[in-house]
Simulated scan of single mutants.
Amino acid sequence: MEASTARDEFKALLDDTLQAITPSVKWRDNGVNVEPEQTFDNKDRDVATAKMSRHVLTRFSPEKVGSLLGVVERRWKERGYKVEFVNPNAPSMQVTTSKGYRLTLTVGGGDERKVASFDVSVDNVKVTDERYPFGYGDPVQTNAAGQPDEQFYFDDPFWSH
């Protein structure tokens, strides 16, 4: 599989998943990472694992985390994905599609507000010359000093309270 095919499928899978979340949430994508798989003696193979993350910028109250997991789990089951695990204690879940794509939802953060991240990956992608062949993803917000603001999140009247 070409890296561009993986990227297109990643976006379609993530778009479909996030469409199930209502009210909708804000998010940003990281770039597609294409990392060569290695042999037992640490030599690069001619295939790679491609990965992409979509970070949800909407904060979740602890009371709404279960609702988020439920919405996403229902969508993934509707699509026929195989549930690999669901962990309500360290909120996360992973599924595999019939084409071998792995989707993971992880929720973390402090006691007051939680943040979520979706990861998708697939194996057997052709190795590319660059680790991030399509760039690093959406621009990161900046703070007042013009530095990257990795903690730029939004409150939502439903999800955050």
Rank of each mutant, 00 (worst) to 15 (best):
G80K: 08
F40W: 07
V125P: 02
D155T: 15
Y101D: 00
N143G: 15
D111P: 08
F134L: 13
P157A: 11
G137M: 13
R113M: 04
L103P: 00
K43Y: 01
M52Q: 15
V32I: 09
N143Y: 09
E35G: 08
K43I: 00
K126G: 12
Q151R: 14
F85Q: 03
D16I: 01
R59V: 06
A48G: 04
K43E: 12
R131N: 12
G135M: 08
V25A: 04
A6S: 09
N124C: 01
V107P: 04
N33W: 05
T22I: 05
S67C: 01
A145M: 15
N143C: 13
W159D: 06
P23H: 03
K51A: 10
S53F: 09
G135T: 12
A12K: 13
R131W: 02
P148V: 11
F158W: 14
L69P: 05
E63V: 07
K126F: 07
G31L: 09
V71R: 09
V115P: 02
D149Y: 08
K51V: 06
F118K: 07
Q94M: 13
R131C: 05
P157H: 08
P88K: 08
Q19D: 14
D16R: 11
G31P: 11
P157C: 12
V65A: 04
S98M: 05
K64W: 00
T128A: 11
A145I: 10
P91A: 05
V127R: 05
D41Y: 00
A6N: 03
A50R: 02
V32S: 07
A6Q: 03
S67K: 10
F60Y: 06
G31E: 09
E84A: 11
S24L: 06
P62S: 05
V86N: 00
K51N: 11
D29M: 09
I21M: 04
D156Q: 12
R28V: 10
Q141P: 15
S121N: 14
E35F: 04
V122Q: 06
A20R: 06
Q94E: 14
L18H: 06
L68V: 06
V65C: 05
Q38K: 10
F10A: 02
T39P: 08
V32A: 07
R54W: 06
D129E: 15
R54E: 06
M52D: 00
Y81D: 03
K11E: 13
E37Q: 11
D29K: 08
M52K: 14
T97D: 06
K51E: 11
R45F: 00
Y132N: 14
R28S: 12
A6F: 07
Q19F: 03
E84L: 15
G80T: 10
K114I: 03
E35H: 01
K43Q: 14
G66M: 00
D123P: 07
P133V: 11
A116R: 05
T104E: 03
